[in-house]
Design a protein around this nucleic acid. Structure first.
Lengths: 144, 144
DNA sequence: CTTAAAAAGGATAAAATTGTCTTCTTATGT
DNA sequence: ACATAAGAAGACAATTTTATCCTTTTTAAG
């Protein structure tokens, strides 16, 4: 559905966002450790997220990654877009390029509904809202 | 969402099924040509579909692939299961192994609904029903 | 100004997915 | 039985995705 990289990205964002009230920056290592992803690879992902202004980074000692207030409003969809692109929400189940409302593949209309629903849910869910649920302790990030 | 291989597989099945009334067998090459996939790779996929009894094959001259009547009732879900497995319908958006109703990730409940809907639609759609739509001429298989 | 801590960036490697080629096996018609 | 036409199977190759390592740049503190 979505790539491993993208899952790392979502976890990373949520973790970083969960620290917003503590007013601290978190390092690549801390993030990688928390989300259980390889450090260097996590670095690459964070780099992209920073370029897209989904999170913010600061170099140097006491540097690291953090969320600015406005960034809490970023929908998850933007993370997916930054890492995987939006193809998932658009592509034909059967892989036909010209599949559309006008030239539908046999599954087109049924499948479109699901893609719409998915996209809607991803665009309505913000990083901040997910981080809040994290903080409430109803869920956790690590994998073991 | 689903792999390229799996898309080839769905296209192949629908094409083979669309020939069921003509009582003909179609060759690897014909199928590959129709679905616009590499011949040898199509072979591998057809092989798996045959092993899973999603389609039927016969070797030798005048051989090829075809659908038996009962196979028209096969849900698309089985194709996905044969090629990609059912992970897509089960996995956590954030990639957490222990994510469940009891230990939900922040997106769990929302995302589960979509996965359910997707799986339902895939299990209610049969190869035969898709082939019928093809034959009706409302849609086509090739990509150009 | 120097040192050190952190991210950024580039080159490379490993793993997974997709694709190719060659040989083996099975079925058909003569 | 034989020749031939097909799929089955296995080994190999290319591409894409995931992951690692090393060097450079930026920033803060002393």
């Amino acid at each position: 559905m979505i790539s491993k990289s993208c899952k790392y990205a979502i976890r990373a964002c949520v973790f970083v966002a969960s620290k917003v009230n503590d007013d601290v920056k978190v390092s690549m290592k801390e993030i990688a450790n928390e989300i259980e992803a390889p450090v260097a690879f996590t670095g690459k992902i964070l780099q992209m997220l920073n370029k897209r202004r989904i999170i913010t980074s600061l170099k140097g000692p006491y540097g690291g990654f953090y969320c600015e207030k406005y960034q809490l409003e970023t929908p998850i969809l933007e993370i997916v877009n930054a890492i995987d692109g939006l193809a998932v929400f658009k592509e034909c189940v059967m892989g036909l390029h010209q599949c559309s409302d006008q030239h539908p593949c046999p599954m087109h209309f049924e499948y479109s509904k699901t893609k719409e629903a998915l996209m809607k849910s991803f665009s309505e869910t913000t990083i901040g809202s997910l981080a809040d649920k994290l903080i409430d302790g109803n869920s956790y990030l690590t994998n073991n």
